[in-house]
Write a protein that binds this DNA or RNA. Structure first.
Lengths: 82, 82
DNA sequence: GTGTGACTTTAAGTCCGTA
DNA sequence: ATACGGACTTAAAGTCACA
């Protein structure tokens, strides 16, 4: 499958990082969010471009501030100084 | 058209706010972003759920930090303490 | 200069499976 | 517990004519 946009790739890395930090599985996170497990997998691997509501839901269920999550994502982008 | 999710509605308000702050029109912003003017209109009115890459592109062309933009969006959500 | 509805095309998001 | 793929359904992307 083709890779998504840089921001989505970075977002995926942040999600994986936070999920592991919480010690939960993709399946658990998926269920909490009401999303499919394979979709979480695709997001974490940077293969999909999630919508704002999806990003929001992920933040809520990872119990991390939405803005903090976005900031974490930016850490994974080389030229992240906008 | 049906209203989008709360985060998208809030995001739309932030976009409109920042765009006006920059003193540019929807048409100008649309051209910079390579998007359609009417699509910008729909986002600002909270009728669409933009993807991360779209939000990213808007931030770049509004010359605002992505995280800052998201923080501005949260200001428009009542219970924004996640 | 923007709002709006209807529209077509593309990608998000699901569900099945295999490894 | 996750990667990966194919086929599928739904929603977002993107456009247009008109008010």
């Amino acid at each position: 499958m083709a890779e998504a946009s840089p921001i989505s790739v970075a977002f995926g890395k942040a999600i994986r990082q936070e999920r592991r930090k919480k010690g939960i599985t993709q399946e658990e996170l998926a269920e909490k969010c009401g999303l499919d497990r394979t979709y979480i997998s695709q997001i974490e691997r940077g293969l999909k471009n999630p919508t704002l509501p999806v990003a929001w839901e992920l933040a809520i269920n990872l119990e991390i501030n939405f803005v903090t999550l976005m900031a974490a994502a930016l850490q994974h982008i080389p030229g992240a100084s906008h």
